[in-house]
Amino acid sequence: MLTTISLSLLVQALINGLLLGLVYTLISLGLSLTLGIMGVVNVAHSTLIMLGSYLALELLQRLGLDPIISAVVAVPVFFLIGVLLERLLISRVARTSQTTGLLVLFGVLVVIEGAAILRWTTDTQVLTVSYTNASLTLDGIAIAVPRLIAAVIALALVVLLDTFLRSTLYGKAIRAMAQNRDAARISGIDTDRLSLLVFGLATATAGIGGVVLAMIFPFDPQDHYRWLAWAFLVVVIGGLGSIRNTLLAGLLIGLIETVSSILFPFQYVYFIVYLLLVVALLVRGQGLAGSQSRAL
C-alpha cells in the first residue's frame, strides 16, 4: 500500500517536473537567443517575464481575457518592446562592450521593476480562471490543468522556434550571424536588422513565458529574480546554439525542482537552484562566451 502511494507520488512528481520543465525552457529561450546570437547578457530578461504576467492580469481583469488568449496577445506586444529595446539601447552598446551592455540592462531592470511597483504595488497577485483549480486524475495521479495548458503552450513555442531556426532561410541567417557576424554581413545579410528580429523574438518568448508562469504561480514585481536564476541555470547547463539542449536542460531543472520540493521544505529549492547556478557558472561560465569572438 505504502509503496503504491509513494510510487504514484513519484510518478506525479516526475510528470509535474516535466511539465514545469517545459515552462522553464520557454522562459529561458529568450536569454539563450540573445546571449548565443548577439552576445548580450540580458539581466532584464526576468523583468520582461514579470511584465508578461501583469499583461495577463490586466487583460483578465479589464477584458476578461483568458490567459491562453493573452499568450497570443503577448506576441506582438512584447515583440515590439524587444524591437524598441534593441533599437534604443542594445544596438548602441552591445558591440562596443559587453560590460557596458550589462550596466545598461541593469538599468532597464531597475526601471521596469520600479515602474511595476508604482503601477501594481508589491502585492502578490494570482490569476484566477475557471480551470485554476481543475485537475485531471488518472490512476491516482493528479495533474493540474493550468500546468498542463502552460506546458502545452511552452512546448508549442519551443517546437515552433526550433523549426524556424532550423528550416527557414531567416532562421539559417540568424544561426549564420551567431557563428560569424562579419561573414554574414559580406554574404548580404543586414545583421543590424536581424538583431532587431532576434531581440524581438527573445522578448516575445519572455512575454509569453510570463503569461504562462502566471497561470501556475502567484507573482509580484520583485520575485522575478527567481526566474532570472532559473533561466540562467537552464542556459548555462544547456549551452548555447541548440534549442534541443535548452529543452533538455529545462526539463532537468523542472525535475530537480519538483523532486527537491518533495524532499525539502520549499525555500530550500531556491537555495539548491542558486547553488547549482553558482557551480554551473564556475564550471562552464567562460565556455559560454560563444562564437561572437569569431570575426573577419
Binding site: 549564420a176 560569424n180 554574414a184 554581413r185 559580406i186 548580404g188 543586414d190 573577419l296
Partner: peptide, 24 residues
C-alpha cells in the same frame, strides 16, 4: 555603402582565414 549591400552592387569579398559558418 554598408557591406551587406555590396553584393547587390556586384561586389564580393573572399576573406582571409576561415569564414564558413561551421555549424551549418
Amino acid at each position: 555603402v554598408p557591406p551587406h549591400r555590396r553584393l547587390a552592387l556586384g561586389m564580393a569579398l573572399l576573406p582571409q582565414g576561415r569564414s564558413v559558418f561551421p555549424e551549418l
